[in-house]
Design a protein around this nucleic acid. Structure first.
Length: 312
DNA sequence: CGATTTTGACCCGCGC
DNA sequence: GCGCGGGTCAAAATCG
C-alpha cells in the first residue's frame, strides 16, 4: 500500500540529450518517468553539447525552462510530461509555505539527544516534486548563466563522485524553482544541470523577447515540445538573451552557431527518439513547427547576421 | 548593510 | 530499528 503510494508520487524527470558534436545529427529526448531523483544512470544515454561558460554561448537545443505564463500555454505538450500524480503540481511552494507556518511545535524532550540539537528543525511533510528537467553541458564552469538569478542554498558531496552537488533556488520570492548542478564523475568537463519546477516570472535579463513580440518565432522553435513540456518560448528567449549579452560574436562562433542551427533543422525533420510513444497529435505539431522554422529561418535569422548566414 | 555563499546539522526516505 | 545518502535549513562568513 505505502509502496504503491510512494511510487506514484515519484517525480518525473525529463532528460535531454544534445548532439555530441555539430556534425552529429542526433537530437534525442529521453524520458525517465519514475526514475529516482539524483541518480545519474542516464549518463550513458546522453550526448553532450560543447557548451561555453554561459548557456547563451551555444544556444542549447534544450534550454532550461524559462518562465511559463500559466494561462496561455498550449495544451499540446502537457500530456507527456505530466508527473505520475497529476494533482501534485498544485502542491508546490505555496503549500510548502503553509506547511512551514503551521508546522507543529517541536516536541522538546529533556534527554541528551535533544539538548545536542542546536537548531530546532522543521518537520517537513513529504511534498510532491515538480517535474524535473535535466541536461548536460560541457563547460568549465559549474553554474551556467541562464538568465535567472539563483541563490545557492546547499552543497553536498555526491557518492562515488569527487565533485559536490550544488543546490540553487530562484531568488524571486514567489518562484519556487530549484536547480541542481553537479559535475559528472565520469567526465569532469561535463556539468549536469537539473531544473525543478517552472518560473512564475520573466527572466530578469530578458528584454528583447517581450519587446519584439517574438512569440511567433518561439512557436516555431518549440522543437522539444513533442517530448517534454518546456515552454515554447524557450529557444527564442535564450536566443534573445544571447544577443543582448554578447552582441559581438566572432565569425567562428557564428559559423558554429549556424552549423548547429542547421543541424537543428535537420533534426527537426527526424522523428524524435523517445521512450514514450508519441501521439499523432504531437507529431503533427512537431512537423508543423519544423516547417515553420524552415520557412523563415526562425532562430537562424534572429541569431546569425545575414552576412554570415548562407543558404544551403 | 543587504545579498549571497559557505558549511555543519538536521530531516526524511529507503534498503537491509 | 539502523545506517546511508539525498535534500534542506539556517547561522556565520563573505562579498559588493
Amino acid at each position: 500500500m505505502m509502496d504503491k503510494v510512494k511510487k506514484e508520487t515519484m517525480e518525473t524527470e525529463t532528460l535531454i540529450a544534445g548532439s555530441s558534436s555539430f556534425s552529429d545529427q542526433i537530437l534525442s529526448n529521453y524520458f525517465f518517468e519514475g526514475e529516482k531523483a539524483g541518480s545519474l544512470n542516464y549518463m550513458d544515454l546522453l550526448g553532450i553539447q560543447d557548451y561555453g561558460s554561459s548557456i547563451f554561448d551555444l544556444l542549447s537545443p534544450h534550454p532550461p525552462p524559462p518562465p511559463q505564463p500559466p494561462q496561455e500555454m498550449s495544451t499540446t505538450s502537457e500530456v507527456l510530461n505530466i508527473p505520475a500524480t497529476p494533482s501534485s503540481i498544485s502542491s508546490s511552494s505555496t503549500e510548502v509555505a503553509t506547511d512551514e507556518q503551521t508546522r507543529p511545535v517541536e516536541e522538546e524532550e529533556e534527554n541528551e539527544k535533544t539538548k545536542k540539537q542546536l537548531k530546532p528543525k522543521k518537520k517537513k511533510q513529504k511534498q510532491q516534486r515538480e517535474p524535473r528537467f535535466a541536461f548536460m553541458t560541457k563547460s568549465e564552469v559549474d553554474h551556467l548563466e541562464d538568465g535567472y538569478r539563483w541563490r545557492k542554498y546547499g552543497q553536498k558531496a555526491v557518492k562515488n563522485s569527487p565533485f559536490p552537488r550544488s543546490y540553487y533556488r530562484c531568488t524571486s520570492a514567489t518562484c519556487g524553482v530549484k536547480k541542481r548542478v553537479e559535475r559528472s564523475c565520469d567526465d569532469q568537463t561535463i556539468v549536469v544541470t537539473t531544473y525543478e519546477g517552472q518560473h512564475t516570472h520573466p527572466s530578469p535579463l530578458m528584454s528583447r523577447a517581450t519587446a519584439v513580440g517574438i512569440q511567433s518565432i518561439s512557436d516555431s522553435a518549440c522543437f522539444g515540445v513533442s517530448s517534454f513540456t518546456m515552454p515554447t518560448t524557450s529557444l527564442s528567449t535564450y536566443t534573445t538573451q544571447y544577443q543582448n549579452r554578447q552582441p559581438q560574436v566572432n565569425h567562428q562562433q557564428q559559423e558554429q552557431q549556424l552549423a548547429y542551427l542547421r543541424n537543428l533543422q535537420t533534426c527537426l525533420n527526424m522523428n524524435p527518439i523517445s521512450s514514450t510513444p508519441t501521439t499523432g497529435h504531437q507529431e503533427r505539431r512537431f512537423s508543423s513547427s519544423t516547417t515553420a522554422l524552415l520557412r523563415d529561418h526562425g532562430l537562424l535569422q534572429d541569431i546569425v547576421p545575414s552576412d554570415v548566414r548562407k543558404d544551403e
